[in-house]
Amino acid sequence: MSKPDLPWEGGCRCGRVRLKVSAKPLLTMACHCTGCQRMTASAYSLSAAIPSEGFEVTVGEPVIGGLHGDAIHHYACPHCMSWMFTRVEGMDWFVNVRATMLDDPSWFTPFIETWTSEKLPWATTPAKHSYAALPAPEDFEMLMKEYMAKG
């Protein structure tokens, strides 16, 4: 399915925090790590890496959830605690938006899957690239170019 026209809007389960995406994803992914499994109460988390300048919280004030004091900041609605997006210190150029927080996530397909070394044995995705942990830092540029070239 093709992506709907930008901007995209989304929000938490209760609607007290809303967000807007005005830039195309750099990459889409499924993360199988046990941390994501626990935060989603599912087999993996789904996210779209959005350029920071193309992301904004339009309503509400999300709070940091998940682990605290880490370089990875998981943001959630303070009321319903929906995990909405993640920012990584030192990688301020993108925001990892949980794809299922978008009002219309029907276009979403993970392009890469990470932490397959921790995945549940039955969990599968249609991702084109799989990694036991994370891709090497030097591979991200190639992956983003390939993802964006596919439209």
Rank of each mutant, 00 (worst) to 15 (best):
F108H: 05
Y131Q: 08
F111D: 02
T100A: 05
S130P: 02
A99V: 03
K119M: 13
W115D: 07
A123R: 07
S117Q: 14
P105A: 14
W115G: 02
T114M: 12
A127T: 13
F108D: 09
P105R: 02
Y131I: 05
V95W: 01
L102R: 07
L102K: 09
T124A: 14
Y131T: 09
T125D: 12
I112M: 06
L134C: 03
L120C: 05
T125Q: 14
T109E: 15
T100P: 00
A123E: 10
A127E: 09
A123G: 08
L120Q: 15
V97R: 01
P126L: 10
A99H: 02
L134D: 05
V95F: 03
S117P: 09
K128T: 14
W107Y: 11
T114P: 02
Y131N: 07
P110C: 09
K119L: 11
N96D: 11
T114G: 00
T109D: 13
A132I: 06
T100W: 00
P126C: 10
F108Y: 15
A133Y: 05
N96R: 03
T116V: 15
T100F: 04
S106L: 11
A132D: 09
T109R: 13
P110I: 06
K119A: 15
W122G: 06
E113G: 00
L102P: 08
R98N: 07
T124P: 01
D103T: 13
E118K: 11
